[in-house]
Amino acid sequence: MKFHWLHFSSPATFYGLAGRMIPWFFALALVTGVVALYWGFFQTPDQLGGSNPQKEYYRIIFVHVGSAWMSMWLYLVLAAWSAFGLVFNTRLSYMMAVSVAPTGALFTALALFTGSFWGKPSWGTWWDWDPRLTSELILFFLYIGYIALHSAIDDARRADRASALIAIVGLVCVPIIFWSINCPDPNQCAALHQRSSMGSIDGNILFAMLALTFSFWMYAFATSFMRVRSIILEREAGTTWVNEQLELEAKR
């Protein structure tokens, strides 16, 4: 059989493939998640040193950084699938974009919540208009806008393409928006620029952070595949392959 990578761009074949992959992604997410949490809670120091010591509450970092990274990464994925859909006009790409969005919004909400809970013990306030926290809030609005636009349009084709366009417009604007939040006064940007380098983080902490991020990533794969399967069935209801697929599933 001649193999072609576009083979899986058909919803019918991807439905089966996704179904077989979901348990694996969940398993990977679970294993790395457990490892990350074990490492994060038992192999790390109780306090972070320095002139301004961070006490045990710094352990929020693992879930906070992981979800914040995933929230940004998933927006990139969403925009990439959207662009792919607009360029090649493949239905599956739109479906993937749509199914990534709620998981992305979930991670954004989690990052905001944990950021706020970290802010309380370390800055003494639940909410500070810190550039990173504010950027995350704006990202949340972008996700919500995307989901709202998609669900407001009844015609699936128009919904897909319209929300894909807004996702790309959002992606183009994101650097400008984040920059404007980071540096509200262009006269003194250089002085304000904050930077944290990976190298200065304790190795054990970094490992737990990366492991939990990986776990979230695998989780995002699993949930978006679950969602895309539902979307495929909803869209393709009545076709022959769906009926056959349902018969297969009923037998099992």
């Binding site: 704006i138 609005f141 972008l142 919500i144 806008g145 709202a148 636009l149 807004i166 417009v169 959002g170 604007c173 400008i176 928006i177 920059w179 404007s180 939040i181």
Partner: peptide, 10 residues
């Protein structure tokens, strides 16, 4: 407003 206001921020 949901779509456009975040883009107005800069």
């Amino acid at each position: 407003s949901l779509l456009v206001l975040p883009l107005y921020i800069p």
